[in-house]
Design a protein around this nucleic acid. Sequence first.
DNA 1: TCAATGCGATAAGTTTTTCTGATGAATAAT
DNA 2: ATTATTCATCAGAAAAACTTATCGCATTGA
Lengths: 302, 302
Amino acid sequence: MNNLTLKQMRYFEALARHGHFGRAADVCAISQPALSMQIKDLEGSLGTALFERGARSVRLTSFGMEFARRVRDILRGVDELADLARASQDRLVGRLRMGVIPTVAPYLLPSLIADLSRNYPDLDLHLRETMTQNLLNEIAEGRLDTAIVALPVSEPSLSEVALFSETFILVRPASDANKPVPNRETLRELRLLLLEEGHCFRDQALSFCNLPSTQPRELLDGSSLTTLVQMVSAGIGVTLIPQMAVPVETRSARVSLARFAAPEPERTIGMIWRKTSPFALQLGQIAEVVRQSAETLRAQSL
Amino acid sequence: MNNLTLKQMRYFEALARHGHFGRAADVCAISQPALSMQIKDLEGSLGTALFERGARSVRLTSFGMEFARRVRDILRGVDELADLARASQDRLVGRLRMGVIPTVAPYLLPSLIADLSRNYPDLDLHLRETMTQNLLNEIAEGRLDTAIVALPVSEPSLSEVALFSETFILVRPASDANKPVPNRETLRELRLLLLEEGHCFRDQALSFCNLPSTQPRELLDGSSLTTLVQMVSAGIGVTLIPQMAVPVETRSARVSLARFAAPEPERTIGMIWRKTSPFALQLGQIAEVVRQSAETLRAQSL
DNA sequence: TCAATGCGATAAGTTTTTCTGATGAATAAT
DNA sequence: ATTATTCATCAGAAAAACTTATCGCATTGA
């Protein structure tokens, strides 16, 4: 009766995710009939249907949904077992899947990758750049081991350590160079260009000006800091960028930079991971490497 | 790389539990070489030893310990999957493993079993009578689905519902019938007979007298309420028994009964189960049956 | 000291499970 | 009507897992 197998669960999970036997079979690197049979066996030994086979669609039954939720938990636990074994080998080797938010990645990664491969030559580093919410989901699902995001995250299931803090720098058209630096109130009168919805840096900037992040804005949103700075240099408005982005983003743009009067706006960048991660110890070491990498970067840019 | 199987985990768990290949193989209903091979494969694919094979002993390595902890979680999750499938069949059928504390079981079970089989004819009811602490462990390990114990239990991972409350009745030798009923202070002067260590009813009685449960007592302990009542009828001392036990225990014993003055001592009996149990819904219904069963029992004994 | 015993590993052969490739049946798109 | 797409089925092949028999090693008891 109770011969569920992990193989069946993996196949099931793939099918649930893709809703397509052929596609799922490819992902599992088996033939489509093999997957069909395993799913059938699985449903047979459960005594219930997991999928509703429409003519051109495969959808989970309501029971299948709950089943999928639990299966994912189990598979995550199993994958962590394998990781745990590797981690117990005292040295971190093998795959490390790290996510980084877009307003950090372009500036930190070049030197970070170099530093990590120097310190962990056997590390197979997988990187992914996306916004905080996606990173959190992927960490929870066990599809990432760790991520570099703006703190605080305040997820009780995650460990977080601070890496460094950086101030926000005001970017204005070159012609504004001699105008007085606005404060958080007068900044609101200017045409402030921001990243599009979902970027934490957008919310931080808005919160510095005491503006609600939900309020509809008629202002132009950019999809990257590079775009924003280009827009500023074209005289369209002003923007904020994090300190770390300054060297890269203002290298070729004709803009003027200014720091705010104290208290300057700033954000703290940190690293997070699942508390239950078997890498917990090693991730602490990794964090130290990241911290030094960022430190070196900052020293160079001064 | 990642072809751990549930079979290997089940075998591993059995071996970890028994520390003996032959014994574990028996439990798994396979031959000893089959188990040896699977364990070897498992260790091979993890790249680490799980067991330390001594000359006449098989012990977990420290890594094996952590591994075992996680494997048990996973296996519990998998077993719950199968349960979930059954539970989704809207009606509760199949095995239900229920534990009951010894100071409730003998009085409640006869009618409860009858009522349950009437309401759930397809239910395969497994019962186990032991003390609260054991019940809690076995529930946590997934070896029991539910238990009937004295509340509160206050385990955040468990759901608890109250079933009924019952007062404690004073049992004295027949010759004491006309003496005044003692209160919680004067009760301490008497020779109070109690159940042995570990019974929650013992602690409740002691707490009623404001006595610490750890304090060494020179009094005689009994292993069942029946024994205690027999001792009372022999004139050795006095004791307390829960209301529900009165009809059965005093049927053939020459003792006198008395209720305490208000506030009477009492306990609340309830049912508990893992919040994550796939039966959660059905267990609620079961609890209702138990409640009615106890209600009927009480009505009859008046 | 020397067999006897208990226990886990190994080996060879068999059974069971799982997979592939070919094909069928049903439905939707052209 | 025809073709394309997609999941199910079938037969044979490949892989995995199991069983029985046996080995080697260490401890035990005479």
